[in-house]
Design a protein around this nucleic acid. Structure first.
Lengths: 158, 158
DNA sequence: GAGATTGGTTCAATAATTAGACTCAGCTCG
DNA sequence: CGAGCTGAGTCTAATTATTGAACCAATCTC
């Protein structure tokens, strides 16, 4: 968190990790995506210490990922709901879910994502909208965007 | 890391975070995907303290994300290269890159991903291969896979 | 209004991270 | 050969973060 290394500041991945790089943070977001909103709900679901949850929620609110608001007009208790920014983290969690399904030594994937209108299983894959090809079949490189100049490097297929 | 909370162990996301939940770890993997292999290369690129890098690399090797091997036959110095398991983390980093591009207050995205054979920009989106629809247009729910029973919950569109 | 529940804060103990010094092995250059 | 540099770490002491446990004030429940 306090880390903001020299070469890395100018990188969107580092920026993202600055917000959600903590081990607990994405678990909070995961629960929020499944509709958890209340302090104790998070605490019981995650088994996270109160103090830690308290600072995590505050950080997420500060970063605009969660919105804290009274559970009803004038109430003192709060609920925490994802903002658009927070809901946009779903692909990160989908990617982690898939990696865990593939590589964690669990007998069977614990949850399957479904289309909640049809209840059909989802088979989510990163696809390049320009070429229609799947990420797994693409040799990915990068172009570094300086104000003026530009250069490209490459990396093997993932 | 020492956290492995009760409700969360049986979740692929938690399993993933157990391996890459640390703030530095995914930055190491990011660099590795771009071809960084040597201790000092990582250290200089990330600005990470030596001791921290040392334990991170050891952890990643222990988890089978990186392979450590002598830079050449019989050499004492090592290089660290991604395993298949490690390369499979690319979607996680792509998702984080996109979130950072969208939400970090950077004037312009620092890097653009390209197809390194054609140098064309990539426009990567999660698509459900079954229905052909983009994740952003799907109301995602989940089916919880117990050995026998099953149930489904839903969550609003991301 | 007694007792549980919710949503926190405070505290002391423990664990992780850090910067910086140190080590040791291999080059490299004269 | 020997001095100095670089790479790849380890060690130590100081700083920070995390944790569990206790505490507290509102709110609900009956």
């Amino acid at each position: 968190m306090r880390r903001a290394s020299l070469d890395s500041v100018n990188c969107s991945i580092a920026q993202t990790l600055d917000v959600v790089g903590d081990p607990w943070t994405l678990l909070v977001v995961r629960d929020a995506l499944w509709g958890v909103t209340r302090f104790d709900e998070f605490r019981r679901s995650l088994g996270i210490p109160r103090a830690t949850l308290s600072t995590r929620l505050r950080d997420l609110v500060d970063h605009g990922v969660l919105e804290q608001r009274p559970i009803e007009e004038g109430a003192t208790r709060s609920e925490y709901v994802l903002t658009r920014k927070g809901r946009d983290l779903r692909p990160v969690l989908v990617a982690m879910l898939q990696w865990g399904d593939t590589w964690a030594e669990l007998p069977t994937p614990p949850v399957t994502l479904v289309d909640s209108t049809t209840n059909e299983s989802l088979d989510l894959t990163y696809v390049d909208q320009t070429s229609g090809r799947a990420l797994r079949d693409i040799a990915v490189g990068r172009r570094i965007n300086t104000h003026s100049a530009s250069a490209a490097e490459h990396s093997a297929t993932g």
